[in-house]
Structure formats: C-alpha cells, structure tokens
C-alpha cells in the first residue's frame, strides 16, 4: 500500500487485559478498525474499553496491562515493535491525546501559556519567542478572549470550559496528524461544547487531521462524526456511518438510544436496557 491510500491508523484484533486476584480481566477483546483523515467516533458506556483503546494507540497503558494485537500501526510505523525513542517522537508531535478533565491534566504550577509554548517548542522545534507567538495564536484559535491575559494565568485561575480549551490548544499546537479526544467536551456547557467541536471540525477539514472522538453521548457523536464504532464490554458491537446511528440495528445500540429522554416525545416510563449475555461472545 502506498502512503496516499494507506489509512493513518490501522488496528487489528487489539486485546488488552489486566491481571486480577481472580485471573485475567479482559478489558478490550478483539477490536479492529482503521482511521483516515476523518472524524471517527467511539461510543459506549463506562467500562466498555473505549478509553483504553485510545490510550493503547499512544502506548500509554498502566504498567500491569497486557496488550496484544495482530497489527497496530500509525502511518505505516508498527507501534508494537517501535522503540521507546520512536514512540517519543510520535507522541505529542504526530499523535495527540486530549483527556477529559483539565483539572488533572494541566501542570498546576506553570502558567497555561508556558505549557502551550513548551509543547510548541519541544514538538515543533521553534524558538522561545516563536513558541510564545504560536501559543497566543492557538489560544485565539480556541476562542479564548484576551489571550495575552489568559497566557499568564495558572490552571486554578481558569474555569473548566477554559481549561478544556487550553488543553486542546496545547495538544493542537504541534499540529498532530491524529488527535485522540477522550470525552473532550463532556465537562463543558452545551454552547461551549459546540464551539470546541467546531474548532476540531475546522482542523479536520482544513488540515486533514484524523480525529478519534471517544464519547458516551450518542446524539452528539451522531451529529458530529463521520463514522461511529459502538463498543460494549471490550468488543465492537457495530460500526456504521454516523448519520445512520438513529437507525442502528444492534439491540445494544437500540437499547441505548431508547433509554434517552427526548424533548420531542413524552413517555411515562423510559425504556431500560436489558443486557444480553450473547453480546459478550458474538457480534
């Protein structure tokens, strides 16, 4: 396959397990997909293995995790056999990860501007003054008013929504090819959420970035992504174009959709999900 048609990321039969006192716990059990320059959504409930899948791509799993895969490659580079040095050159620079909670992901004793500039300097190889300018431009790109003032602030001085946009700015300043966003907007108000999503949307359209959007919010993913993977208990239940999500076939996806209260229809009782043990073994 040549570089033009090759997907950005290829995953085949990814498995992650953890040792427990009662034997191995299989958190991710045979996940396969590929990502091009598009918006791929991964949805599922807590414990479905969606976040672990995202972290496995960055090779950022807890030390006791067992990972195996037939193939795990980014831009043709085999991540399973790559040296620590190769991985370091990819992480942050070409693959970035935005996590859910800015409170735990920003350095509390460094101004937010300095943190963004550091990312630009280390991964972008630019000078200190250039890095500062890039950081300010990025803060403006994520729609932060008065970037000069915010640059000087410490993480505890900014709101949750601002912190999340700062995180996104930091991850985007090295201009990665692939962005893994793990619930990047679930701590935000709906209006801010939409603005942050439009920033990501622009980057996919203008720069051809690949985006893996991990979320529990089915309706948001259906409206934002190009393609969706539905996960349950470490397995892929189905994969479908995002705009077809409302018409999903799998009983698990249907169950999730039916359990949502909606403004449009009035029901006395919400449908609850009955979990079929067969979902654990068959597609």
């Amino acid at each position: 396959m040549n570089a033009a048609t090759r997907p950005l990321l290829e995953i085949e039969d990814l498995k992650i397990s953890f040792p427990t006192p009662t034997g191995l716990f299989h958190a991710v059990r045979g996940v396969s997909f590929s990502v091009g320059r598009e918006r791929l959504g991964i949805v599922g409930e807590s414990g479905s293995g969606k976040s672990l899948t995202g972290r496995a791509i960055m090779q950022l799993l807890p030390g006791n995790a067992h990972l195996s895969a037939k193939r795990l490659a980014f831009d043709g580079i085999d991540l399973l056999t790559a040296s620590a040095k190769t991985l370091r050159s990819l992480r942050g620079a070409r693959i970035s990860l935005v996590m859910q909670d800015p409170k735990y992901s920003l350095n509390p004793v460094m101004t937010v501007g300095a943190q963004i500039a550091e990312a630009a300097r280390i991964h972008g190889g630019v000078s200190k003054s250039e890095a500062r300018l890039k950081a300010l431009a990025m803060l403006e790109a994520v729609r932060i008013r008065e970037p000069e003032r915010v640059y000087q602030l410490y993480p505890h001085e900014v709101s949750g929504g601002m912190g999340q946009r700062i995180m996104i700015a930091m991850m985007l300043v090295p201009e990665p090819d692939l962005l893994i966003a793990d619930e990047p907007t679930s701590a935000l108000d709906v209006t801010v959420q939409l603005q942050v999503l439009s920033i990501l949307d622009d980057l996919v359209r203008q720069r051809g970035m690949g985006l893996i959007f991990i979320s529990h919010d089915l309706e948001l993913v259906a409206s934002f992504c190009d393609r969706v993977i539905v996960m349950y208990a470490g397995r892929m239940m189905e994969e479908l174009p995002a705009h077809d999500l409302p018409a999903a076939r799998h009983p698990y996806t249907r169950g999730l959709l039916n359990s949502l209260p909606r403004l449009g229809d009035q029901r006395a009782e919400l449908a609850t999900l009955t979990r079929d043990p067969a979902w654990l073994v068959e597609p």
Binding site: V190, T191, L194, L197, S198, D201, E219, L220
Partner: peptide, 15 residues
C-alpha cells in the same frame, strides 16, 4: 440558544 445547542452539533449553529 440553549435548546438549539442541546440538539447536537451543527456547524452553522456553532458559528
């Protein structure tokens, strides 16, 4: 605005 924003992502709405 709150109502529109809660209905999911829409480029035009976000702008």
């Amino acid at each position: 605005q709150l109502l529109v924003a809660s209905k999911g992502y829409d480029r035009a709405v976000a702008a």
